[in-house]
Design a protein around this nucleic acid. Structure first.
Length: 512
RNA sequence: GGCCCAUUCGUCUAUCGGUUAGGACGCAAGAUUUUCAUUCUUGAAAGAGCAGUUCGACUCUGCUAUGGGCUACCA
C-alpha cells in the first residue's frame, strides 16, 4: 500500500488512568501522523464491559490535550467514521463475525467453563500444555462437530456461545514489522481466539480492532510490543476478510520498564519510588485511591513530552531538547529502538529544569501566581514574573518556585537557626546597624548602584564580605538562601529593606 | 512450560564491517561564589558468553545465557 493517506489511531481501553507508556504510544502515533501530513484518530476500545471505569475516557482525552497531542478524528471530535467508541458500534461486529463463520474461518463454540477446565486438567495430567486449538476444538460442542440444526437450536434456545477463529494448523505466517523487521510464526503454536461473545453481544479486541482499522482506513498501526504475539492472528484475519490489499503496516513499540528490577512500569513503582506514572492526577471512582500525575506534581507538558519522546526514540543527532514541532520534523519510526526502555525519574526532572530555565518572566508569572495565591499572597504578574525570573535557574519543578521566591513577598517573621547561629553574633548586629544607615542614604536603589556603594563601604571599613552579606541575607530573607543580595534589595526597595533590617535588630537576640 | 521479541557505560542511547566506541542523565573531583543553585572543566563508567563468516567484527550467522512480552469469553 504505497502512497496512501497516512491515518493512524490511538485506541486505548478506558479501564483506568492512561499510563505514561500509553501516552508515549499516543505521542508516537501523533508525531508520525503530523510528520506525514496524515490524520490522528482517537478510538475508545470499550468492548470489555467488566473492566470499564467511569471517568477513564475523560481522563484520556484530558491527558492528550495537556500533552498537546491533537486529535483529528474520533471520540470527542467526531469524524466521517463516527461513532468512534466501540460500544456504540456493537451492531457492526456480529455481521463480520458471521461472515467469517460462513467462509469457514471461524465457528460457533458452546463449551462451558467446566468443560474447558476438564480438558485443561487432562492435558496437564498428560504433561501437555493446554491450548484451545485444532486438537481440542473437535472434542467440544462447536459448529464444527454439531449439525447445522443442532447449532441453530442451541442458539435459538438462548445457549451462551462464542465465535472462535479457526486457526490453521502448521502454517507459517510471515509478517513485516516497521521496527522489528521480518517475523514468522507457525500457526500450530497459536490458539483459536474468541472473536465475539454472546454474553454481552460484543466482539473481543481482536475482531473489533481489525474491523475498525479497516473501516476507518487506518494505514499504520503503531502500538505497544505486548501486541506482537497477536500479530499473526491479525494478519490471518485480514486474509480471512480478504482485506490484504488495504492491510495497514505495523510497528510494535518497545515497552517502558521499571526504573529498577524487572517488568513493565506499574502504578506501584511510582508510589514506591516517588514519581508519577500517570500524566494527570487520578482518583479511582470505585476505591477512592489516588495516584500522582506529572501535571499536578509540577512538570511542564513540554518537558514531559520531550522526555517521553526520547524514551525509545532518538533523532540520530545530539540534540536533546525538542519542541513538539521539532519532534514532528525529526520523527521517524526507523529510529525507534527495539529493546525496552527503563524509565528514569531523574532524567524527567532534568528535562523539566531545562524547560523551567527557558521560561520567560511572563510564562513564569502564570505558573507562579496560582502558587502565590495558594499561600495567600496577592501581587502583580509583573512582580511575580520578576521574582520567578530571578530564581528560575534553581527550580526543577513548578512547586519549587514558592520556596524559592516567598521571601520576596513575605517578610521573615522567624529566622533559620543555623544561619542565625552563624551570623547573628559578635559585631554583626552592630555592622548591620551601620549598614542600615548606608542603605538609607542611597537614593537610587537599583542593583548596580547599591552594590557599588555597599561594596565600597565594606572595603573602606575592612569588613568581611561574607559576614556582611550573610548577615544582611539573614535580615532580609530569614535564611541562608536566595539570589544575590542586591537582587533582593532592588526587588524589595529601600523602604521594605530598611523595615526588615529594623525588624531583626529589634526582635532577634544575638546568638552566643 | 510453550511461542515471540530483545541484549553497547548504573540508566537513556549513537555506531548501520575498519572509531582513542560518541553524547546525555546520574555520580565523583575541581573552578566560580555572599547563601542555595546555576554554569563551566575534568574524571570514573559499556559491546552478556561461546563458536562461525571475514584480511578485519559492537555491527553478519548460529548456539547458550539473561531480560522482557504473550499464553482470558482483558485490552
Amino acid at each position: 500500500m504505497k502512497n496512501r493517506e497516512v491515518r493512524v489511531r490511538f485506541a486505548p481501553s478506558p479501564t483506568g488512568p492512561l499510563h505514561i507508556g500509553g501516552v508515549r504510544t499516543a505521542l508516537y502515533n501523533y508525531l508520525f501522523a503530523r510528520r506525514h501530513g496524515g490524520k490522528m484518530i482517537l478510538r475508545i476500545e470499550d468492548t470489555d464491559s467488566q473492566r470499564f471505569v467511569p471517568g477513564a475516557e475523560d481522563y484520556i482525552i484530558e491527558s492528550l490535550k495537556w500533552c498537546g497531542i491533537e486529535i483529528d478524528e474520533g471520540v470527542g471530535v467526531g469524524g466521517p467514521h463516527a461513532p468512534y467508541r466501540q460500544s456504540e458500534r456493537r451492531e457492526i461486529y456480529l455481521k463480520y463475525a458471521r461472515q467469517l463463520v460462513d467462509a469457514g474461518w471461524a465457528y460457533y463454540a458452546f463449551d462451558t467453563p467446566a468443560e474447558l477446565e476438564t480438558l485443561r486438567q487432562e492435558a496437564e495430567a498428560a504433561g501437555r500444555t493446554f491450548a484451545y486449538n485444532y486438537e481440542v476444538r473437535t472434542k467440544l460442542p462447536t459448529s464444527l462437530s454439531l449439525t447445522e440444526a443442532e447449532v441453530e437450536e442451541r442458539i435459538a434456545r438462548g445457549d451462551q456461545w462464542v465465535i472462535r477463529f479457526k486457526m490453521p494448523e502448521g502454517e507459517i505466517v510471515e509478517m513485516e514489522d516497521l521496527i522489528r523487521g521480518h517475523v514468522e510464526v507457525n500457526t500450530s503454536t497459536l490458539d483459536d481466539k474468541v472473536l465475539y461473545k454472546s454474553v454481552d453481544a460484543l466482539p473481543t479486541y481482536h475482531l473489533a480492532n481489525i474491523v475498525d482499522d479497516h473501516l476507518m482506513e487506518v494505514s499504520h498501526v503503531i502500538r505497544g510490543e505486548e501486541w506482537l504475539p497477536s500479530l499473526p492472528l491479525h494478519y490471518l484475519l485480514y486474509r480471512a476478510f480478504g482485506w490484504q490489499e488495504s492491510q495497514p503496516e505495523f510497528a510494535h513499540l518497545p515497552l517502558l520498564l521499571k526504573p529498577t528490577g524487572g517488568g513493565k512500569l506499574s502504578k506501584r513503582d511510582g508510589d514506591k519510588m516517588g514519581f508519577p506514572v500517570f500524566p494527570l492526577f487520578w482518583q479511582s471512582p470505585a476505591t477512592g485511591e489516588t495516584a500522582h500525575g506529572y501535571r499536578e506534581d509540577g512538570y511542564l507538558p513540554e518537558a514531559f513530552v520531550n522526555m517521553l519522546a526520547l524514551l525509545g526514540w532518538n533523532p540520530g543527532t545530539e540534540q536533546e531538547l525538542f519542541s513538539m514541532q521539532e519532534l514532528i520534523d525529526a520523527f521517524s519510526l526507523d529510529r525507534v529502538s527495539k529493546s525496552g526502555a527503563r524509565f528514569q525519574p531523574d532524567k524527567a526532572k532534568w528535562f523539566n529544569a531545562q524547560y523551567m530555565h527557558r521560561k520567560s518572566d511572563e510564562e513564569l508569572a502564570a505558573l507562579l501566581q496560582p502558587v502565590l495565591r495558594e499561600h495567600g499572597v496577592e501581587t502583580t504578574d509583573a512582580l511575580a514574573g520578576r521574582a520567578a525570573g530571578i530564581m528560575k535557574e534553581r527550580a526543577t519543578l513548578v512547586g519549587d518556585l514558592w520556596d524559592l521566591t516567598s521571601y520576596f513577598f513575605v517578610a521573615p517573621a522567624e529566622f533559620e537557626e543555623k544561619q542565625t547561629r552563624k551570623y547573628w553574633k559578635g559585631d554583626n548586629p552592630r555592622i548591620l546597624r551601620e549598614l542600615r544607615e548606608v542603605l538609607a542614604s542611597i537614593d537610587d536603589f537599583s542593583k548596580e548602584t547599591t552594590e557599588q556603594i555597599v561594596h565600597a563601604w565594606i572595603e573602606q571599613h575592612g569588613l568581611s564580605m561574607g559576614q556582611v552579606m550573610n548577615t544582611l541575607r539573614l535580615a532580609l530573607v530569614g535564611a541562608g538562601k536566595g539570589p544575590g543580595m542586591y537582587d533582593v534589595t532592588a526587588f524589595l526597595g529601600r523602604e521594605e529593606t530598611l523595615r526588615r533590617i529594623d525588624y531583626i535588630l529589634a526582635n532577634l537576640k544575638p546568638a552566643e
